[in-house]
């Protein structure tokens, strides 16, 4: 049994609205994260990922339940627990008028570092993030990718045992994204750090993670390795039919379920709203089916008979997206 780095039991958070009603953002999550693993928490926006992590990191007080980091309770032994934790928030959380080095030094001091140890760690992080040449420049003059790297560097500065990265690739260019993903892998390979990674991009979770937890509506609905989770949906392929701006009547769904062997789930996603200038996106009909390629001709026939024009068809092997679709009845991007 591997050592547990993070232990979460019955963690819950309830917010009270202005009208007095309550919203349950997190509904009793249980979770163990092992030392040295990359654990990805996957879920759509608003699923409760950030709230859960905010409670684990001591930013929010839980309404119920408990969380420990390295054996220290985040609520009763917060200072000890926080020393073990490095955080890389989703948004850039830096002082724009300070230089990269000043930002690193300031946050380093907040973790109790000083003197030579601080300077040594700052130099290491600047090397690691490839920012040595720009260390004295104000952060506000940096590109988005460089800011991201400083943002990550602050989280790694005190050499934490656990690093929490909250959707660090949101809004970055492909080159910077690749660099960030490589950094995460290096943290595990070179520094044996435990990484808690949240994302709504299943490709990232699939590439990086030793284990994945899927969160929806404030609950952990699935937990395991990528392979274990995919097994939950069996060998189902995911067929994605792009159908322009058309809708799908219930009669078509019924026929697909009844007449096509192996179809288990059907999900229709209307096109997202546009601001009027953009070209409208396509509606998508997503179908989970065993041996999807074989079932495809029958599916196309039924859809065509309903006078729905199919613009394109994609067939995807089983993945985490399919897992989420099967568990929740909707796509992860919703």
């Amino acid at each position: 049994m591997p050592d547990v780095m993070v232990e979460v039991r019955g963690l819950a958070k309830t917010y009270r609205r202005a009208d007095g009603s309550e919203v349950q953002a997190v509904r009793g999550i249980d979770l163990d994260i092992y030392k040295g693993e990359i654990f990805s928490m996957l879920g759509p926006n608003g699923a409760g990922k950030t709230t859960t992590i905010s409670m684990i990191s001591g930013l929010l007080a839980p309404t119920a339940g408990r969380a420990t980091i390295g054996g220290f309770s985040i609520t009763t032994q917060g200072m000890q627990a926080k020393k073990l934790l490095g955080v890389v928030p989703q948004e850039i959380a830096l002082y724009p008028t300070l230089s990269a080095r000043q930002n690193l030094e300031f946050f380093g001091r907040m973790y109790g570092m000083g003197g030579r140890e601080l300077q040594k760690n700052v130099d290491e992080v600047l090397d690691f993030t490839d920012l040595k040449e720009r260390q004295k420049d104000r952060v506000e003059t940096f590109s988005g990718g460089m800011k991201r790297r400083v943002n990550i560097g602050v989280g790694l500065l005190h050499k934490p045992q656990l690093v929490y990265m909250d959707e660090p690739t949101v809004g970055v260019d492909p080159q910077s994204r690749r660099r960030i993903l490589d950094t995460v892998i290096r943290l595990r390979e070179e520094r044996q750090m435990t990484v808690l990674y949240t994302t709504h991009l299943m490709e990232e979770a699939q590439e990086l993670s030793n284990r994945v937890g899927i969160v929806d509506h404030g609950q952990m609905i699935a937990l395991g390795t990528v392979g274990e989770l995919i097994q939950k949906v069996g060998e189902d392929d995911r067929l994605i039919l792009n159908i322009g701006e058309q809708s799908v009547p219930d009669s078509v769904r019924t026929r697909l379920l009844q007449e096509v062997p192996g179809v288990s789930t059907i999900e229709f996603a209307p096109p997202p709203p546009t601001n009027g200038n953009e070209h409208p996106a396509n509606s998508q009909l997503t179908i989970l089916a065993q041996r999807g390629r074989r079932a495809l001709p029958v599916i196309i026939q039924i859809v065509n008979e309903a006078r729905i024009d199919i613009l394109s068809v994609e067939v995807r092997e089983p993945d985490l997206e399919a897992v989420f679709l099967q568990l929740t009845g909707r796509a992860l991007r919703d």
Binding site: Q80, K82, A93, M110, Y111
Partner: peptide, 14 residues
């Protein structure tokens, strides 16, 4: 707003 206060609260600083 810029997230640095949250970062400070997450650090081991009362």
């Amino acid at each position: 707003r810029q997230g640095t206060l949250q970062r400070l609260i997450i650090s081991p600083t009362p």
